[in-house]
Simulated scan of single mutants.
Amino acid sequence: MRKDATADNFENITAIQSLQHPYRPVFLRLENPDDKNTYDFIKENMAGVEVIDTILRQLKELIKIRNAGIRTEEALNRLLKEQSEQLILEEYGVWVFYPWSKKLVHLLDKEDFIEVRTNRNLYKITPEERQVLRSKTIGVIGLSVGQSVAFMLALERVCGALRLADFDTIDLSNMNRLAVGVQDIGVNKAILAARKIAELDPYIDITCYTDGLTDGNIDDFFTGGQRLDLLVEECDSLPVKIKSRIKARSLKIPVIMDTNDKGLLDVERFDLEPDRPVLHGRMKLFEGLTDEAAVAKLDQLTPRERFDTTIDIVGAENISERMKQSLKEIGISITGWPQLGSAVGLGGAMVTDVSRRILLGQYNASGRYHVDFYDLIN
């Protein structure tokens, strides 16, 4: 007996609501009856859905990389025909639905997808190293500069899971350095980064903390489900910079920070040096204080003290002439610290390279480094 229209409408609304996650895609394997029902519902009942099916192209590439000795297109096509004829193509692999874009995409399933997507990494990253890296979890705090970092970490697949923390949303003025579109204005920065990564590689596990890093979620960010293997700190907040490092040090988690100007990169190996002072001990106002006293003092700093402490951390000697001029104009002709897209891109590359080597045990030091194009190319 047919259900009445009210019941149908209720079920449709419930189904649609279950498919509205802000940044996590929905995986549908059609041999599972429930997944097949959801797949049919998306195609038949949801307006504006775009179906993208390139599974034969992906399968052909999988066959090619597993048969690297094949020299002709004819031989490759013959293998593809033989293999595809043994499959129910619609049920092969997995269908991935992206709620925010209403795209339903047919992909290789996880192991085959990772094998193909990372094939051009070989042997700069060996198969054994690839397995090590996919077990790692990296946290990123601050998704302005951190967006470039997070995306590059995912692009190179330096980890299997990411935790992204940022309370802020995209503004038009962010778009000199963030690879976003005008349609993204007003979207939370962590969510937007997570969406971009999910569209690149839906099998990377992402958790967003859209309140930023807070006293209420710091434990979950660092240890929820699986303890972080590495922290990338890219936020503007001095209290968060210090609190996150104190937490990382207590858990023996290494920290990396890219500061953009003059290609400045900081590495703090709290995993190897658990008594190391945070931020290389550069904060004069906090000298001699316990962790508890330092955290308490953070809430009492004047704006000037915060600014001076930030300069202490970076080091006046490490600030470029253009940045010094900019700092004089903050609050007069400009409203915030200037950052260039090229510098943000460089930072993403540097952090990714060093992160990979730390996680593989190939780099075992703390330090401060510069990759300054003005010095290197002049």
Rank of each mutant, 00 (worst) to 15 (best):
L376S: 03
N45M: 11
E73R: 14
D40C: 09
I55R: 06
A47V: 08
R130P: 03
D308Q: 13
I88C: 04
L301R: 01
A179F: 14
N174V: 07
V295N: 03
L172V: 13
K252R: 15
A5H: 10
F151P: 01
P338D: 00
I125Q: 14
L340N: 07
V354M: 13
D353G: 09
F307K: 11
G181N: 15
Y123Q: 07
L62C: 04
V354I: 15
V344L: 00
K64R: 12
L360C: 01
R157L: 10
I42N: 00
L104M: 09
K124D: 07
K124M: 14
C235W: 03
A316H: 09
Y92I: 02
K124A: 13
A150P: 02
P22C: 11
D184R: 02
T38D: 04
D219I: 01
L231H: 06
G225F: 03
I334G: 03
A15K: 15
I218K: 01
N176F: 05
T207A: 06
P274V: 11
P33Y: 04
L279Q: 03
I88M: 11
L279P: 03
I191L: 08
M175D: 03
F113D: 11
I256W: 13
A365G: 01
K64M: 05
L289M: 14
G142H: 01
F221T: 01
P33N: 06
Q86P: 01
L107N: 12
T335Q: 14
K189W: 08
E11M: 13
A248E: 10
Q131G: 09
G361I: 00
A194R: 02
K81H: 10
A365L: 11
P99F: 06
I313Y: 03
R157K: 10
V371P: 00
Q226K: 15
H106R: 05
Q362K: 15
I42T: 00
N9R: 14
E292L: 06
V140Q: 02
G341C: 04
V182N: 11
V255F: 10
L359M: 02
V140P: 08
K247E: 15
L265C: 07
Y23V: 09
R66Q: 13
